[in-house]
Structures are given as structure tokens and as C-alpha cells.
Design a protein around this nucleic acid. Sequence first.
DNA 1: CTGATGACAGTAC
DNA 2: AGTACTGCCATCA
Length: 113
Amino acid sequence: MDRKEDRATVTFRSRVLRIIRAVPKGHVVTYGQVAYLAGSPRAARQVGTILRGIKEDEDIPWQRVVNARGELSTYKVALGELQRALLESEGITFTGRAIDLARYRWHFDDAEG
DNA sequence: CTGATGACAGTAC
DNA sequence: AGTACTGCCATCA
């Protein structure tokens, strides 16, 4: 996990992935929320950048990350449809094209990390 | 090191 | 309610 990579960047990416992995099925978190928990409150866009590059074998529930309005911010329509299907299969209901954050947003606590 | 990029977020109209 | 613009900051060429 360290190798020759920059420890700072690896730490940010690692924290982001670890946080997302901790989101339970049927719940979601926002990009900004993950960024905040990862240590950079204003790096919400970087969270998305990281998710864009994840591999399937990373075993990351990327579909549980939505934007601040409860909508899907995927950069491809097909990917958005997949995300929506995955979330609905977890029991999440969409109201129009967004989901109710007040109801599905996951709140981390000390036990989570 | 400099400049461009972008799965965001907040504000203005 | 929907669009446009601006600030942000980790990554990449």
C-alpha cells in the first residue's frame, strides 16, 4: 500500500475508499460528506475522480455515493442507470430522479473510523 | 513547477 | 425549477 507512491495522496485515496466501503447496504453518502471525512472538506470532486478510476476487483460500493441533492452524478448515462438499478435493488426508493437524503444518508460515528 | 481537468457544491438569475 | 458561473483541490500531462 505504500511502495514508492506519495504517502499523502495514497492516504487520501485510501481513506475515501475505506469510508465508502463502510457505507451499509440501503444507505448512501454524498461526495462532499466523503471528502469531509477523508480530511479534505472541499475535495468533493476528487472523490468522484477516484470513483471514476476504481476497478471492479476493488470491491467498492460506489453506487452508494450521490451528490448533495440526492441525485446521481455519474458521467455516463448508462452508468447512472446501473447505479439507480443497484440502489433500488438495495431497497432505496427514488423520488423523481433523486433520493431522500434525510432518509437514506448514512451517518458515520467513531466506531466507523 | 505550471496549467488543464473534473462521478462536486454553493450561489446567482 | 432549471441553467450558468464560480470556488475547490487532488491528479495528470
